[in-house]
Design a protein around this nucleic acid. Structure first.
Length: 369
DNA sequence: AACACTGACAACCGCAAAGCC
DNA sequence: CGGCTTTGCGGTTGTCAGTGT
């Protein structure tokens, strides 16, 4: 019973492709495109099934594929996206330009899984292995994280849809100022401010006094809550201790310049945690960017800040939820430290953007818009 | 030199969703 | 609406090169 595999039909070849076969396939697609994969092999003079041709094209011959070693940044992105999306390779691939889902999947299985395991990180849960068994009654928060991840997942899908439509991508967040900061990168180009779309970040930062290490150990990606707080000083200050990290006074607006600091966990070693900050100082008059890095360690566990990005705050939200009390600039891009209310119009706004039917934020989370 | 083992990656398989009639 | 075909996806297997014995 069951259907026979397409390649089991008489005379159809299986196995590795020869250069001659590649050439035939490429020549045919170059001339005729790839309308019907089923009819393609015979037309192209190939003794392969259409499915095999499609895979060969999609995973190997397509001209827009980058081959070769994955960069550190790509690795970091895969790890974090996998933490959010699981084995949804195609969704992950939409965030890695020129990489195929198959390639990412293979790379995960052969490299990254082992790498995380070696570091004592469970590649399935993305938590330190010695902490997986210790719940400490925090399952509610974990459930929230899971819910947030679903929203983030939906956001990623919405983003992919927009890309397919060729529309400008309002979700786009340029990570370069974070990830390139430690290298001697050239000055960064001016970055347009995206609209209010960063759900995850806003939910995550609901309590300024939250013990961040606890949140991380519960599965939060620290990059999810880039803290954009009303500044009181130029330099972010942090208190480091064995198990607790508090971040405060990381500011965005500061007179003629702005500072955005993204906490980025670099490693969790035993009971200690190491943080890496990158700050970007923006001069609104000249569009100059300067970056500098702060770190209290250098061991590696990458968590790219792909969720970074600013959040525009509607005035109603500022009235409702912003508790800083120092927002004397209505155009300021400020979020954090306060508690917000997601009113109905904002829900509709976000749902429209995300193509959602109806959805609710995680239980117990406050949403500041 | 021959064989076994291992890692990396290409390719296949089967299922499900999407599209079409 | 239902059935058939096509396409997309994720898990798994196959192949091959490199390395060790």
């Amino acid at each position: 019973m069951g259907r026979t595999a397409c390649c089991e039909k008489m005379g159809l070849k299986k196995g590795p492709w020869t250069p001659e076969e590649d050439e035939k396939l490429l020549a045919y697609i170059h001339e005729h495109g790839h309308g019907s994969w089923r009819a393609l092999p015979s037309k192209a003079g190939l003794r392969r099934c259409g499915k095999s041709c499609r895979l060969r094209w999609a995973n190997y011959l397509r001209p827009d594929i980058k081959r070769g070693k994955f960069s550190l940044q790509e690795e970091e992105t895969i790890i974090q996206l996998h933490a959010l999306l699981g084995n949804r390779w195609s969704a992950i691939a939409t965030h890695l330009p020129k990489r195929t889902d198959n390639e990412i999947k293979n790379y995960w299985n052969t490299h990254l899984k082992k790498k995380l395991t070696k570091m004592g990180i469970d590649p399935i849960t993305h938590k330190p292995k010695n902490l997986v068994a210790v719940d400490c009654g925090q399952s509610k928060e974990i459930a929230n994280i899971s819910h947030m991840a679903q929203w983030e997942s939906a956001r990623l899908e919405a983003e992919a849809r927009l890309v397919l439509r060729g529309a400008p991508n309002p979700f786009h967040s340029d990570l370069s100022f974070v990830n390139k900061a430690s290298a001697a990168a050239p000055p960064l180009p001016p970055r347009p401010r995206p609209p209010c779309l960063d759900i995850l970040k806003v939910w995550a930062w609901t309590n300024p006094d939250k013990d961040i290490s606890t949140m991380i150990l519960n599965g939060y990606s620290p990059s999810s809550w880039s803290i954009i707080n009303q500044p009181t000083q130029n330099t972010p200050t942090s208190n480091f201790s064995e198990n607790t990290v508090q971040i405060q006074d990381v500011g965005l607006f500061n007179g003629d310049s702005s500072i955005n600091a993204i906490p980025n966990v670099k490693g969790i070693m035993g009971n200690s945690m190491e943080l890496h900050y990158t700050t970007t100082t923006m001069n609104p008059t000249s569009d100059d960017y300067t970056t500098s890095s702060y770190t209290n360690g250098d061991s590696f566990l990458g968590f790219p800040s792909f969720v970074e990005g600013f959040v525009d705050v509607p005035s109603s939200a500022v009235q409702n939820g912003y508790s800083d009390g120092n927002d004397n600039n209505s155009n300021n891009v400020v979020v954090g430290g306060g508690w917000g209310v997601l009113d109905e119009s904002n829900v509709n706004c976000w749902n429209n953007v995300l193509d959602f039917p109806t959805c609710s934020p995680p239980m117990g989370s406050s949403v500041l818009l």
